[in-house]
Amino acid sequence: MQIEQTENIIEVEDVSFVYGKNEVLRHISLTVPRGDYLGIVGPNGAGKTTLLKIIIGLLLPSSGRARIFGKEVSEFRAWEKIGYVPQKVTNFDVNFPATVGEVVLMGRYARRGLLKGVTAEDKAIVRRVLTEVGMESHIHRLIGDLSGGEQQRVFIARALATEPEIIFLDEPTIGVDPRAASEFYALLKRLNTDRGLTLVLVSHDIEMVVKEAKHVACIDRKLVCHTPAEDFLKENRLNSLFEGDFKIITHQHPH
């Protein structure tokens, strides 16, 4: 079946999220078409990660709905279509006894399901994705012994091992030195353009996101803007974002 280019993989409809008395997200609506590379930016505490967690079902919205591959997140079961790179470098246990190979193998579990062991095919895929991110020579090293940039490559390899159609990344370059970060973004761009993977990236690094992503969504509790990246600077959205000034939302899909 030929899949239409403009199929929306993600549809967020009027999502709000209230935590205690704190309104973290207010009436957010946006869509992500297949093949997009969406950067979600905004100041600290703007609700970027909360929005991401609602989209992938780690949090339930207080109101509104999120659909992924056309299904309500609560009813979504095709998890093998999703890769997830959590905000990890800052908060994972560096003493955890797992090798790079073992961590990336975890990415295969969504494909295998409960009670099924891993196969030779899984191991071959682990090697392939590690080669793809340039980490194959580190397969037997402990994850905690790697640098921040290397760890992040391993986590993207784990996401790739699932053979997903979309990858979500939450602040992937925190704790990564600038050179490794720009190599990391080059890798993401390759995955998006060469492999056609849809990417959704949460980041506070607006400059980098505007340079790398196809679309930019600015969040400051509400959706301040959602525009093609090249329009972002032109329209000087940065000021509006940090003043919290509401602007008309432009909404375009790539062709």
Partner: peptide, 17 residues
């Protein structure tokens, strides 16, 4: 394998179903 994944990274394990 499920217990290993949850132990290493509960959120990612959840997102993998």
């Amino acid at each position: 394998k499920e217990l290993v994944y949850i132990t290493f990274d509960e959120e990612a394990a959840h997102v993998s179903g």
